[in-house]
Amino acid sequence: MLLPRAQRRQVHAVYALCRLADDIVDAPQATTGAHAAGTGQALHAFADRFTAAVEVARRGGLVEDPVMAAIADTVRASGIERECFDRFFGAMAMDLTTTRYETFDDLVGYMEGSAAVIGEMMLPVLRPLRPEAREPARSLGFAFQLTNFLRDVGEDLDRGRVYVPQADLRRFDADPWLRRVTPQWRALLAFEIERNRELYARADPGIAMLPPASARCVATARVLYSRILDRIERCDYDVFSARVRVPRPEKAWVAAATVVNPRRVPRTEVAA
């Protein structure tokens, strides 16, 4: 809502592509037993539909599916690099076979295609003022997804996945499968949250490299998403009992403050 209408539609299109692909691999029992092969075929078919739509749009043809039409038009109009989508679909395919990551570097390898690349897709839509915005955009993608992983530990366990590095679990002697907060779990999550905040800090310089509307949009999202980490701390690192959320009134207040004072970019420091 903080972006001009044309850019807003392009954001919706990029989100739709990512959401639809993610829904394929996150469907109930999508990656279990005999279902995994069918899920892989569905993901491959979706990627083929996307590729075909982009090619039709490039040639000036009509893409009949309205969602694919919006996605293809966004890729063409904003100039998103096609190899971004190759990395993205590669990461989605990893979810069909990989349920654990030994080290943080291994996890980063997965997030390269599922998180950093989202920042790269979004950047042409946001129209950066300087090419140096690329690395901060990638860092923000990493930061957002790591926040998701820490918030969604319980949900991911239900899918048989653990995105917290196994080496970190051993280091703190923490076991997510207990599904309860222990001193070891608190120590582990405190460590991961600090790592997450470092990623947000790396992303922050990029906000000044965006035009005003884009900067307000990204800064607002950054502030609100990073507050999930504050909420995890406030609930004593309990990410098992219920999904940790930033309350709607708080979201509305931050967004409204930006609309009322359009020259103001929200503070990007993590709220106390």
Rank of each mutant, 00 (worst) to 15 (best):
F50Q: 00
F50T: 02
F50D: 00
T51C: 04
A53W: 00
A53Q: 01
A53M: 04
V54L: 08
V56G: 04
A57H: 02
R58P: 00
R59A: 15
R59P: 03
G60I: 02
G60Y: 02
G61T: 13
L62S: 14
E64T: 14
E64I: 11
E64C: 04
D65L: 06
P66Q: 04
P66R: 02
V67R: 14
V67D: 09
M68K: 02
A69Y: 00
A69M: 07
A69Q: 13
A69L: 06
I71G: 07
I71E: 00
A72S: 10
D73Y: 02
D73A: 15
T74A: 12
V75K: 03
R76K: 12
A77M: 04
S78Y: 09
G79K: 13
G79Q: 12
G79C: 08
E83K: 09
E83T: 13
E83M: 06
E83L: 05
C84H: 15
F85S: 03
F85T: 01
F85H: 02
R87K: 10
R87S: 09
F88I: 07
F88S: 01
F89L: 03
A91I: 04
M94W: 11
D95H: 10
D95A: 09
L96Y: 09
L96P: 03
T99G: 06
T99C: 09
R100S: 02
R100W: 03
E102V: 10
E102N: 08
D105M: 06
D106L: 05
L107K: 07
V108A: 10
V108H: 11
V108K: 13
G109Y: 10
Y110W: 07
M111D: 04
E112T: 09
E112W: 12
G113V: 11
G113C: 11
G113I: 09
S114K: 06
S114Q: 08
S114T: 05
A115R: 08
A115H: 06
